[in-house]
Design a protein around this nucleic acid. Structure first.
Lengths: 153, 153
DNA sequence: TTTAATGCTTAGTAATATAATAAACTAAAT
DNA sequence: ATTTAGTTTATTATATTACTAAGCATTAAA
């Protein structure tokens, strides 16, 4: 598993939306400026998250994005799988993105059997952590009494 | 951490060399045919492993490659770090390939603190496993009594 | 001392992925 | 009607991946 900028931006945007979960919708512009993410690029990323039902949008004046699910129901695994693809280091050990690799017999492949352990370790962590926990960490790290829109992620 | 074909080929080649550790040198040609790895590409990869002292070569007639270190001294972490780069999902949590990322304050970055756990989980496994253990798995999976050059990896 | 089998070195390339940018459109609120 | 904001579809620059090509250098054996 490798987190590209695209994936990092997605997580940062979700934290902003998570910290503002009970407030109004947050415009792309605001997320873009606060997090220093190119606006056009962020549009694509949020559109992508919308298509899987992680966020929802409101158009027009006073429009923007909000989470569509409670922050503690959005696992990092779900987000990263959708933005980046497989969590596994090789796709022949991926559960959701399985693809055959070049070895002749998977059942007898030594590399595969070790990479399976690596995948499981990664997946265990990323299935455990949610956007809510990410937000919690940000609050803990930066102090409880900040305004949601002042958090630096 | 993501294993590209290059990295997979490196591991497969090291298994072949590991299984033949006490024998003579193994020619690229043999590894290439047995493992179905493009020869020229494998030359590059083995040259790369040679430059870090993981394998050594003998030129000329009856030349080839052998491990330069005992198989149980070659961790998968060392191999993968050299072939693929950082084990960490983002390089701001990488121990050996650290690079600053785009967030304003790393100490307060929630993403970073979770990705650090992911890195540690991956590194723990890959530091633990060695080429010797990989070879052991191959032997276990395929039967003890095969000739080293008959193993299918 | 030649020759054939090997590794070594440098360069080039095609395909794909990454990280954007651009332009024009649609929807909603005032 | 106008302005704010999300939507859609292309386009582009750069980097990475997985090779491929060509020719040189070394060594053992005939």
């Amino acid at each position: 598993m490798k987190l590209s900028l695209r994936g990092e931006y997605a997580l940062r945007a979700l934290i902003v939306l998570g910290l503002n979960y009970h407030e109004h919708v947050v415009p792309i512009q605001v997320i873009s400026e606060q997090q220093n993410i190119p606006k056009r690029f962020l549009e694509q990323i949020l559109g992508d998250l919308k298509s899987v039902g992680i966020v929802e949008s409101k158009r027009g004046v006073a429009g923007g994005y909000r989470l569509r699910m409670a922050p503690d129901h959005i696992t990092l695994a779900a987000v990263i799988r959708h933005i980046e693809g497989p969590l596994a280091p090789v796709s022949c050990v991926s559960v959701r993105f399985y693809e055959r690799c070049s070895c002749p017999d998977e059942a007898k492949c030594g590399i595969r059997s070790i990479m399976k352990e690596v995948r499981d370790a990664i997946a265990a962590l990323l299935e455990k952590y949610t956007v809510a926990q990410l937000c919690e960490r940000v609050r803990k790290l930066q102090g409880e009494n900040l305004n949601p829109l002042d958090y630096i992620i």
